[in-house]
Amino acid sequence: MDELELLKRDWKKREDQMPKLGFDEIYKMIWKRSSSIVKWIFLISILEFLLPHLLYLLPSMSKNLAVWRDLGLGNFLLISTIIQYSVVLFFIFQFYKRYKEISSMDNARQLLSNILKTRKTVKYYVLFCLSLIFISFLVMAAGIYLNDDPISAMGYKYNLDNVDPAKLKTTMMATVLILGVIVTTVMGCIYFLLYGILLKKLNKNYKELKEMEF
């Protein structure tokens, strides 16, 4: 008989002597864990919102914004920024709302419902952010296609007399689209690390509550 089996037998012998947790104690543990998880989701979403604004202080970011305007995409940049701010702030408010609701709950069924709402909210938020990233690259590719001199618009100075403009645009568009796929994939992995792990823990709490009789 191996060591693991011996430990299992010893645990069973002592099981009757050990105190058993009641529903209230288990519920409080799950409630505290869930509240902490949603709090972290809320805080991470705020940090994620603030970080790009710090990057805008870098000279390279100012140059990138100028490229959008030179490609004739200034209006899109303005509209997408307004939409991004509005939607992201809405989601941050929803995360805060979920956190406050869970923090003041004393009902297991309500907690189950709120966990489900939080999971859906996070999924919609991640889907929106990734979609916005990829759409931005699609629009930039369209801007390159519609621009008569995309190389100059993007700030490059080369002698391109012997280069076919159509092939050049196709190459640039393909590069932007491939870069869009790569960036979106990388950001998807980051979102998985930031939110996926927290959602996995939240889902575990949900399953534990579902298994309890109340």
Rank of each mutant, 00 (worst) to 15 (best):
Met1Val: 10
Met1Asn: 02
Asp2Glu: 09
Glu3Lys: 13
Lys8Asn: 15
Asp10Cys: 10
Trp11Ile: 07
Trp11Phe: 10
Trp11Arg: 12
Lys12Leu: 15
Arg14Tyr: 14
Asp16Gly: 15
Gln17Thr: 15
Gln17His: 08
Met18Asn: 05
Gly22His: 06
Phe23His: 10
Phe23Met: 13
Asp24Pro: 01
Tyr27Met: 06
Lys28Gly: 01
Met29Ser: 02
Ile30Pro: 00
Ile37Asn: 03
Val38Lys: 00
Val38Cys: 04
Trp40Arg: 09
Ile44Val: 09
Ile44Asn: 05
Glu48Cys: 04
Leu50Gly: 09
Leu51Lys: 02
Pro52Asp: 13
His53Glu: 15
His53Gly: 08
Leu57Arg: 12
Leu57His: 07
Leu58Lys: 13
Pro59Leu: 02
Ser60Phe: 14
Ser62Glu: 14
Leu65Ser: 06
Leu65Tyr: 06
Asp70Tyr: 14
Gly74Lys: 06
Asn75Pro: 01
Ile79Thr: 11
Thr81Pro: 01
Ile82His: 04
Tyr85Thr: 08
Val87His: 02
Val87Gln: 02
Val88Gln: 12
Val88Lys: 06
Leu89Ile: 12
Phe91Asp: 04
Ile92Ala: 06
Ile92Asp: 04
Phe93Val: 11
Gln94Glu: 07
Phe95Gln: 05
Phe95His: 08
Tyr96Glu: 03
Arg98Met: 13
Ile102Asp: 00
Met105Ala: 03
Asn107Glu: 12
Asn107Cys: 11
Asn107Pro: 13
Lys117Thr: 06
Thr118Ser: 15
Thr121Lys: 12
Tyr124Cys: 14
Leu127Asn: 07
Phe128Tyr: 11
Cys129Ser: 14
Cys129Trp: 05
Cys129Asn: 14
Leu130Asn: 05
Ser131Cys: 04
Leu132Lys: 13
Leu132Glu: 13
Leu132Gly: 10
Phe134Gln: 04
Phe137Val: 05
Leu138Asn: 03
Met140Asn: 01
Ala142Trp: 11
Ala142Gly: 12
Ile144Cys: 03
Tyr145Glu: 10
Leu146Glu: 13
Asn147Met: 06
Ala153Thr: 05
Ala153Tyr: 11
Gly155Cys: 15
Leu160Asp: 11
Asp164Ala: 11
Asp164Ile: 11
Asp164Tyr: 09
Lys167Glu: 13
Lys169Glu: 07
Met172Lys: 11
Met173Arg: 09
Met173Leu: 08
Ala174Cys: 13
Thr175Met: 03
Leu177Lys: 08
Ile178Tyr: 09
Leu179His: 02
Val181Tyr: 06
Val183Glu: 06
Cys189Gln: 06
Phe192Cys: 00
Phe192Val: 00
Tyr195Asn: 00
Gly196Pro: 00
Leu199Arg: 00
Leu199Gly: 00
Lys201Ala: 10
Leu202Arg: 04
Asn203Glu: 06
Lys204Pro: 02
Asn205Lys: 04
Tyr206Ile: 01
Tyr206Asp: 00
Lys207Gly: 02
Lys207Ala: 07
Glu213Phe: 05
Glu213Gln: 09
